[in-house]
Simulated assay, not measured.
Amino acid sequence: MGSTRARIAIDAMGGDYAPAEIVAGAIRAQAELDVEVILVGDEEQVATALKQHSSQEKLRIVPSEGTIEMHEEPLSGIRRKPKASINVAMDLVKQKQADAVVSAGHSGAAMAAALLRLGRLPGIDRPAIGALFPTMDASKSVLILDVGANVDCRPKFLEQFAVMGSIYSQYVLEVEKPKVGLLNIGEEPCKGNELAIRTHERLEKNPLVNFKGNAEGRDVLSGDFDVIVCDGFVGNILLKFAEGIGEAILQIFKEELPQGLNGLVGTALLKPNLKRVKQRVDHAEHGGCLLLGVDGVCVIGHGSSQAPSVYSAIRLAKEAVEHQVIDRIQSRTTIAASSSQESE
């Protein structure tokens, strides 16, 4: 395999449908995305899953022992199970044997393993999970962060999220000058709680951020903003609500399409449009969320990920690697840190 291919270590034991669906998505990704996928997991189970496919793709297996179960406390789990699949996958990145990690397993364990094994980037106090949302403008997405890593935040954390989100939007999403918004209950700078008011003040003064003011809930999907920052408590609720809305829209389409022969003809005519709708609102099309702020590319997938979501998550990791997101964030966080020295 060529040395230029991004090497993606995937936690083959993480998720509701592991390892079968993880392996299926990984095979497709290696074949279509020109990446090298490294499957980390129970060697026998992963090999059995690979045998179910006739693909000529040869995927490397790195053995691990056990996984972090959903009921386990993340930090104690990764410490008690040093050879668990998520730990071994993170170690591959730390040892420069892989360029990125993808996991659909215990999200808390993935974050804890990334922090302990990869560490934070200089100048970043708290990593953030960034999720891409569709907007009313079909040509663009909006990056929301944090959507779950930090329930409680300080103003400087949100400021750092804005810097990291701007870099990702600029270099991966190719937005020349990303417009950043602060999620709030009103447009005026004086609106919101103390966190929102103080964060607004900091963002206005930060030269690394193209800050356009507060974004209300109705603005999230408008396309008026490229990056929106909030604390992880609000962001996670927003993420789950958006996923629910997407599923509801798809279900409504299924129920309301005409039945019978005429319905079949109508559905056939609408099929290209329906496919585009699904691509815009179905969270499986995005695959997962980026954990920004750790010293390595890490994509956290949905626990219910099946092969299409796994494929999309690997694509997301590949894009982050190829656009050198980690290096670009690191090159700017020193400046960001110096601008965040004001007393809180």
Results as ranks from 00 to 15, higher is better:
residue 187 E to R: 10
residue 335 I to T: 12
residue 41 G to N: 14
residue 23 V to S: 01
residue 153 C to T: 02
residue 308 P to T: 04
residue 339 S to W: 03
residue 185 I to S: 01
residue 38 I to S: 01
residue 141 S to L: 13
residue 20 A to D: 11
residue 310 V to A: 10
residue 288 G to T: 02
residue 80 R to Y: 03
residue 69 E to F: 07
residue 141 S to F: 07
residue 166 S to M: 14
residue 1 M to D: 02
residue 28 R to E: 09
residue 101 V to M: 12
residue 267 T to K: 15
residue 324 Q to P: 02
residue 96 K to I: 02
residue 179 K to N: 04
residue 112 A to I: 03
residue 91 D to V: 11
residue 7 R to I: 13
residue 282 D to R: 07
residue 237 I to A: 10
residue 85 S to T: 13
residue 162 A to Q: 08
residue 322 E to K: 15
residue 85 S to F: 05
residue 197 I to W: 01
residue 286 H to P: 00
residue 184 N to R: 14
residue 78 I to V: 13
residue 119 G to I: 00
residue 292 L to H: 03
residue 75 L to R: 14
residue 123 G to A: 07
residue 110 A to G: 05
residue 251 Q to K: 15
residue 49 A to D: 03
residue 244 G to H: 09
residue 171 Y to I: 14
residue 262 N to R: 14
residue 233 F to C: 13
residue 89 A to C: 13
residue 161 F to M: 09
residue 45 Q to M: 14
residue 119 G to D: 08
residue 211 F to A: 00
residue 108 G to N: 07
residue 190 C to R: 14
residue 142 V to S: 02
residue 252 I to E: 00
residue 265 V to F: 08
residue 179 K to W: 01
residue 5 R to Y: 05
residue 68 I to E: 06
residue 59 L to E: 02
residue 66 G to E: 04
residue 11 D to I: 01
residue 135 T to P: 10
residue 284 A to H: 11
residue 113 A to E: 06
residue 137 D to Y: 00
residue 337 A to G: 06
residue 67 T to W: 06
residue 252 I to R: 05
residue 143 L to C: 14
residue 180 V to M: 11
residue 92 L to H: 01
residue 258 P to Y: 09
residue 253 F to H: 02
residue 108 G to W: 05
residue 110 A to F: 12
residue 324 Q to L: 08
residue 116 L to T: 13
residue 212 K to E: 09
residue 318 K to N: 11
residue 258 P to C: 12
residue 58 K to H: 11
residue 276 R to Y: 05
residue 278 K to Y: 01
residue 338 S to E: 11
residue 291 L to C: 03
residue 121 L to R: 07
residue 214 N to F: 06
residue 112 A to Y: 03
residue 139 S to P: 08
residue 245 I to L: 08
residue 326 I to G: 04
residue 272 P to D: 13
residue 170 Q to W: 03
residue 57 E to K: 13
residue 273 N to I: 15
residue 306 Q to E: 10
residue 74 P to K: 07
residue 307 A to G: 05
residue 111 M to I: 15
residue 328 R to C: 08
residue 71 H to E: 06
residue 287 G to P: 11
residue 56 Q to R: 15
residue 246 G to Y: 02
residue 82 P to C: 13
residue 96 K to Y: 02
residue 94 K to E: 04
residue 73 E to S: 14
residue 317 A to T: 06
residue 84 A to C: 15
residue 238 L to W: 00
residue 246 G to L: 10
residue 17 Y to E: 10
residue 105 G to S: 02
residue 108 G to A: 03
residue 251 Q to W: 11
residue 331 S to I: 03
residue 38 I to C: 04
residue 114 A to P: 07
residue 251 Q to R: 15
residue 339 S to N: 04
residue 233 F to H: 09
residue 266 G to T: 05
residue 277 V to Q: 12
residue 171 Y to S: 12
residue 161 F to N: 04
residue 217 G to C: 00
residue 142 V to H: 01
residue 14 G to N: 11
residue 255 E to F: 12
residue 270 L to P: 07
residue 201 E to L: 10
residue 62 V to A: 14
residue 29 A to K: 00
residue 121 L to N: 04
residue 126 R to T: 09
residue 209 V to S: 00
residue 201 E to T: 09
residue 52 Q to I: 01
residue 116 L to V: 13
residue 186 G to H: 02
residue 332 R to N: 06
residue 265 V to R: 14
residue 42 D to G: 11
residue 168 Y to D: 08
residue 196 A to C: 06
residue 199 T to Q: 04
residue 203 L to G: 00
residue 140 K to C: 08
